[in-house]
Design a binder for these strands. Structure first.
Lengths: 348, 348
DNA sequence: AAAAAATAATCAAACGTTTGCGTGATAAAA
DNA sequence: TTTTATCACGCAAACGTTTGATTATTTTTT
């Protein structure tokens, strides 16, 4: 029997009672007698009745759905985050509408539109790398759709966000190396266009100041995150006057490129040349030559916080809290973790 | 101005015309005059009118949304797949409602219910490892919600699915090692409870037969995918009479565990002992000691195919194709790929 | 000038719910 | 017995669209 799903209307007709009675009976409304309530519920389950959410959405003006727009779903960082978000949403009876921008500003705009059309109750966004105008986010304010940004934050006023501060982690990273006796510490940074590069550089400089050491600009070189560029950067550092004995790299990819290159140059990793990196690869745990320590950015935690904030906002809104003026601005401090050897892990 | 979104009703009132005229004007219906059409569109854009999809969903009985239920969003395999799915859906104007089961049968059931309530047009599922009953999927047939399974397929009749056949890849893997001159090839397999283990074993045996070699059961040992268990398995193989010079491992995690252990035992990887594995880690590209070759399972491709099939089914259904009896059963042949060195890759 | 055809717009039902308000019927209080 | 609560349920509007059937207006044809 491939029939259309049952509706309360049908139940009402079959039982010769009104639609509203059926609705109330199913919701255990006190003004419905016990007998009819039971009759209704019995028939409902016999007919495999399932409330049609789309109708309820329309009626209630909310969809119990949050939209999530991320740059790249296949990246470990974001798949961790989305996992956290889904977990939070599930716990609080929300569902996740997911989309990826592929770091394309145009597509990001379209996705925001689409989310608006789908009438998501709220939005979680990690901004595309190439987004320069934030008009499309501002538009959402007219409607009452709250947005919480995370990790990649736009330069806007009055927004909710969760971000990870790289400075502390960087200071710790450099201090860690200094404590280990290194006196010349290099940095292979990312492109200057990324704010993340700025944060790392700042952290590096502050660590130097904090430890009363002189900052030598020639020890910070940039790369564009590709392998050849990383190799060139490492070569430059190794050729410099104050040849570094330790290097902080922009991220794990860069670290692995550099480690590979160094290995080819017959350098012993973490003996001749020690590395510290920023974590984005979970499988660091499975490899031999890895950075001695990593600055952890907690993607799962960021996703979780962001989702929790959004869901709190939605709960408030639903309880009739009119206009809040306070904005959540959560900074998660990055944290240096020493990389131990492999941990037990069950594969897929 | 934080106002409720504009509706066609308001537009109609402001222009003193009927609602239906507005609706038709916005859809360029031929029976609406040019002048009114323009007037309507002008006002609509002034008011920032956006059609309320939830209303349209209710009216049309479809949501342009597909549900996706996966075991673990944070796993590389599935995040690749979801990326593909989202891309496909986006191209064809669908949106993705996402949820993860965490390999929990109970949760999987609830998620199916939820998806049903949300009235997704179709469902994409990779079944939880622990799911034993498939009743919840069967229930969906009563409604007209098509399901396409991928990668993890339930033992059900009459379903659409996309899967990856490990046998061919395994045969190729073993043959590859034989061709390289290895005469004793071991296998560190997964638990017998997983069907994936069976496929691998079958492939191994068939490769032996195909090459007219005798199959020695002692060369296949199982592990539970953890590091200690993998170490034990490797030890067992190395201690066996016909000490293997090459090993096929259940997956990349196992391979890395084994490689690490072998390195500790002073064995030279891919010289003393050669490895072939099943790919699930993209970052194989970033490491030094890696399996010489991997059996690729094409997560992106699987996700893509599955999504395409589902969307085709939905398109057919929408065009009024009543009852199709044919079921898509797509087998993607796994494929052995030799692991070259690192490729250029831009990090996050 | 009347009939036919084309054009332009309206009416109203439908999608499946929820919910404020009204209304009988029965039971308790006066 | 009349008044007042209490209980159990029905009516109808509302959410924002789409669309088949209908009507009113204008243009074309004969």
């Amino acid at each position: 029997m491939r029939s259309k799903p049952a509706t309360i209307k049908e139940i009402a007709q079959l039982l010769k009672i009104s639609i509203s009675t059926v609705s109330r009976a199913l919701h255990d409304h006190p003004s419905i007698g016990l007998t009819t309530r039971q009759k209704v519920k019995k028939l409902a389950s016999e007919l495999n009745y399932e409330p049609n959410q789309t109708a309820i959405f329309l009626q209630q003006g909310r969809t119990l759905t949050i939209g999530v727009i991320l740059p790249e779903l296949s990246e470990a960082f974001f798949s961790s985050a989305i996992s956290a978000i889904e977990d939070c949403a599930y716990k609080r009876n929300y569902t996740v509408l997911l989309a990826q921008s592929h770091d394309d500003e145009q597509k990001e705009k379209q996705l925001v539109e689409k989310m608006k059309n789908h009438r998501v109750d709220g939005l979680l966004v990690s901004v595309s790398k190439n987004t320069s105008s934030y008009q499309h986010f501002d538009n959402l304010r007219q409607y009452d759709i709250p947005i919480v940004f995370f990790d990649r934050i736009p330069a806007m006023q009055n927004i909710h966000y969760v971000a990870c501060n790289m400075e502390i982690g960087t200071i710790d990273a450099v201090s860690y190396l200094l404590k280990k006796g290194h006196r010349s510490i290099g940095m292979i940074n990312g492109p200057a266009t990324l704010s993340a590069s700025g944060e790392r550089k700042e952290g590096y400089i502050k660590a130097m100041i904090k430890n009363r050491l002189k900052f030598d600009p020639s020890l910070i070189v940039s790369c564009d995150l590709t392998e050849p560029s990383t190799q060139a950067a490492l070569d430059e550092l190794l050729a410099s006057k104050r040849k570094p004995t330790a290097i902080v790299t922009f991220n794990d990819y860069v670290a692995l490129f550099a480690i590979k290159h160094a290995t080819n140059l017959k350098l012993k990793i973490n003996e001749d040349l020690e590395f510290v990196s920023y974590a984005n690869l979970p499988l660091i745990n499975y490899m031999e030559s890895i950075p001695a320590a990593s600055v952890e950015q907690f993607p799962y935690l960021q996703g979780q916080k962001a989702a929790d904030i959004l869901l709190d906002l939605l709960a408030q809104k639903h309880q009739g809290v009119t206009e809040q003026t306070a904005y959540y601005k959560i900074i998660i401090e990055s944290q240096l973790v020493e990389n131990s050897s492999m941990t037990g892990f069950k594969g897929k």
